[in-house]
Amino acid sequence: MRGRSEAGARPGAARRRKAVATNRQRRSATVAPGLGENMFTEAFSIIEHTSDIGAVITKLRDHLRIDHVVYHSSKLGTNPSDPQRGPYIRLTYPAAWILRYLQMGYAEVDPVLREAFQRTLPFEWSELTIASEAEASFLADAAAHGVGPHGFSIPVFSKHGHRGHFGVSSAQKEQWSSFLPAARPTLIGIANRLHRRVVAEVFGEDGPPLTAREIECLRWAAQGKSASDIAAILQISPHTSREYLKSARHKLDCVTSPQAVAKAVRLGLLVL
C-alpha cells in the first residue's frame, strides 16, 4: 500500500475493502455487457458440468452470443495433419460447411488451422498471412457459409506438449468490434479450461499438481486473508501472492479463490 504505514490497522482494512471494490469496478468497466466475472464463472460451469464436449461447444457459443466456436486438439501436438493420430475436433459450424470442407480437402488450405498450430500468441484472423489465391478463396467460401470473416484464435498448451486451438468467429463486423476487446481475457480463460478438460479426459494427461506454496496460499485464503495479507505473511509482494493463487485456481479449474479452496478441500488437497 503505497507509502502508507500500517499504524492504523482498522482504517487500513477499510481502505483495503475499498480498494477491492474499486478493483472490481475497474474490472467490470473493462468487460462488455454480459461478459463480467459471472460470464466467466458460468462458462467454467458449462465446461465442468456438461458431460458431452460437443454439447459444451454449443452451449459456449450460445453463452458467448457469438456465431461460431471451434476447438481442435492434435494428439501429436505440433502437426495437425499427422495421419497417425486423429485430431480431436468439436465445432458449431453448419453441416453444409463441414461437408464442403471435407470434400474440398480444405484442411490442406485452411490458414486458420495452419497458423493456430504454429503460433503461440492469440491472434485475430485478420492477422493471418494469406499465402495463396487458394487460401483467399477458402476464407471467402468460409464466410459465405457463415464462418468468419471475423475470428479470434487462442493456441493452448499442456505440460506434456499437447497443443490445441480454440477459436470464435462472427459474420458481423459491428458485433465483433464490440465483442472482442472486452471478451479477450474471458476467451483465453475459457480456451485453457476447455483444453485442460480434453487433455485429461480424451488423452489421459494429468494436470500439474499443486505446490506446497499454492496450498499454503489457499489455506490463508480459506481463513479470509486477502492477497495482500497473504503477501505480508509470506513476505512476498502482493502481486506474487496473487500469482500463486491464480496458478492454484488454474490447476483446480476454478474462477475464484473461494471456489478453489472448496475444491481443494473436496479433493483432499487442503485440510482445514
Binding site: P185, I188, A212, R213, Y244, S247
Partner: peptide, 12 residues
Amino acid sequence: LPDAVHLCAPTI
C-alpha cells in the same frame, strides 16, 4: 525453487 517453477496459468 520447487514452488516458483510450477507456477502455471494462461496469464503467466
